[in-house]
Nucleic acid binder design. Structure first.
Ligand code: ZN
Ligand code: ZN
Ligand code: ZN
Ligand code: ZN
Lengths: 138, 138
DNA sequence: TCTTGAAGCTCTAGTGACTAGAGGTTGTAG
DNA sequence: CTACAACCTCTAGTCACTAGAGCTTCAAGA
């Protein structure tokens, strides 16, 4: 049995975050001591590892809840799991596209001024004031 | 003079968002009617355009506040403006790197299962359970 | 057995940048 | 003059935590 602190150390998830996961129904402790402290077993440790890894990959709490739910029913089809993963991939790709567009514009904007003039004639400020300066959409 | 709704239409910023910008000190109306409704002048319209564009480029409210502050003092050096832009660019690039790593792993994960098996033997779930499956860091 | 202090507990509130809704008031076109 | 769209303020909700107050428990050393 592990205390919440030991769980935290082993997974790299902060203690208040673990309590938060319990609050939203993602991870319940195996039980409590007489003094009301949480105790976890190996299963809890593994589940927190799963949560941690999925969060690191950007999955939402809601998605992770669904995935764990699926994991608890080994005989169910995993179709939903692939759908969730596909959705997450789509999401990441959309963000990538957006950020690439931003990067292009920001390079132009940031490199357009050496910061040695007055703010009146600053290319950074002028670029922000008018999207017409931009090369593309974003 | 424009009403808040007209300002909203011209800039594409929603009415409650404009009120929110006022609340955080970004955009104050030129005045109020007898009946307490906001009225904006051309300057307000331009400033909201600036805010909108900067937000679209991912700048934080705090950064935009500093940029507008600078804009109000045409004789000041624009060094801070370039610093803010550079910082934003760095930020975007960090996010890009992270998302690219995520994309790589998610492609592998999502393509690793056709969703037709049982959740027990699902590659998606197995990959989430163990970072060892991952090709790189993320 | 006692003491001490790290670690645990609950509860509330704050973060960023909005968004939604309730419940009431004003502006304006017909 | 009457409708009603648009406006007003205020509170609360979103997401995934994070911080802090004020208290209790656990475990190791004396
Ligand atoms: Zn400049
Ligand atoms: Zn632009
Ligand atoms: Zn599968
Ligand atoms: Zn991984």
């Amino acid at each position: 049995m592990f205390s919440i602190g030991q769980l935290s150390k082993q997974t790299g998830v902060k203690v208040p975050t673990i309590r938060y996961y319990e609050q939203v129904g993602l991870l319940v402790s195996a039980g409590r001591t007489e003094g009301n402290q949480r105790r976890y077993d190996k299963e809890g440790l593994e589940r927190l590892g799963f949560i941690r890894h999925a969060r690191d990959l950007g999955f939402s709490i809601e998605a992770i809840t669904a995935l764990i739910d699926l994991q608890q029913h080994p005989d169910r089809s995993c179709q939903e799991a692939t759908e969730i993963a596909q959705h997450q991939l789509t999401d990441v790709r959309e963000k990538l596209l957006r950020l690439k567009a931003l990067e292009t514009e920001l390079v132009r904007i940031a490199d357009g001024c050496d910061g040695e003039g007055s703010s009146e004639e600053c290319y950074v400020l002028a670029s922000l004031a008018d999207h017409e300066h931009c090369r593309g959409e974003h």
